[in-house]
Design a binder for these strands. Structure first.
Lengths: 186, 186
DNA sequence: ACCTGAACACCGTTCAAGT
DNA sequence: ACCTGAACACCGTTCAAGT
């Protein structure tokens, strides 16, 4: 986890991890099947932190629609705040998360938390009816894309570190646009 | 370009490229400053192909709102159809596109094409007023996120190759949700 | 059970040297 | 101008051998 923060996704290396543990280059193979398994463990840790941030947001707001909007902003904030970690969570280093049960489970759980909030919005007639999973997919795609584009420097080009307030404003604006698309038509 | 298609982003290697060109491992350094420059050239080629696909879509539809929706679907279709290429276009291998003028220019041009279509929608009162660039950012984030999640196997988990018709349906549904958020309020 | 040391087949990159 | 050959400092991974 330190490695990915300090050296980026490309800097995560079995040999360097072993070095930091004060152990030989072959030792990691007693604990991880291969490099992908190591990276999967780092990604899992990232999803756990993201899940905690999201739970915190849900706890902080009572109105489900406010929760939904805050979730979107928090998601982007997390990604931009931990770009390397976020990259590892979604990058090609772990081509299929289902090969790593722990990772797959926590990633699925994160998504399900979003689905729940959306369902709560529907229950109070704040969002249109329909499969909440489908609405959640759209919401996830939007925030994920936003996060990725910011991390990549396509949005908010004041690279390398856009101000948190700018991120917040952008996220709030974009999330609101989608929310209006999801609202129950009056 | 062949390499990225056959071996994925991780398979793009200066030495292998040299091998395919029937040339020594050091020869590429006469043509590219380093590996990043090589990858940037591949990414640029990808943006050019994406731009061509988008121009084709615009040509095919007269109504700007129809163009916008078709652009979203075409974007996702391109990404899912050329996942490795797409990854290289947005991945961490090229950390800052501005370091590669050709790449930066064609990427910017692609985005501007989207802005134009959105402005056309606004001109005919089909979309809400406001900075078209800001609406384009939201639209881009949505389709980019959708593409990324599908490529990563988070959506349409019938991996590794989701049926084109499923991609189409998903993209159309999600794009429509955002479009309704962007519409001029009646 | 956990680790080491050495080895193998790869990288990206540099640099003198060739034509 | 373009390329080669050899070298350097790195990888991931394996495997016999040690405790």
């Amino acid at each position: 986890v330190d490695l990915v923060r300090e050296a980026g996704p490309a800097g995560v290396t079995l040999r360097e991890a072993a070095r930091r543990a004060g152990v030989s280059s072959a030792a990691p193979y007693r604990h991880f099947a291969d490099k992908e398994a190591l990276v999967a463990a780092v990604a899992e840790e990232g999803f756990r932190a993201l899940g905690a941030a999201m739970a915190e947001v849900v706890r902080k707001h009572r109105d489900p629609l406010a929760q939904l909007e805050a979730l979107g902003v928090a998601y982007v904030r997390f990604a931009v705040g931990h770009p390397s970690h976020y990259r590892v969570m979604f990058g090609p280093e772990v081509p299929d998360k289902r090969a790593h049960p722990g990772l797959h489970e926590v990633a699925t759980g994160t998504f399900n938390a979003l689905v729940s909030v959306i369902a709560a919005c529907q229950a109070t007639d704040r969002l249109r009816a329909g499969d909440p999973t489908e609405l959640a997919e759209a919401a996830w795609a939007l925030t994920h894309g936003l996060a990725d584009l910011v991390i990549d420097g396509h949005l908010l080009r004041g690279r390398p570190a856009p101000a948190p307030s700018d991120v917040e404003r952008l996220a709030r604006r974009v999330v609101r646009l989608l929310r209006e698309g999801l609202e129950s038509r009056s």
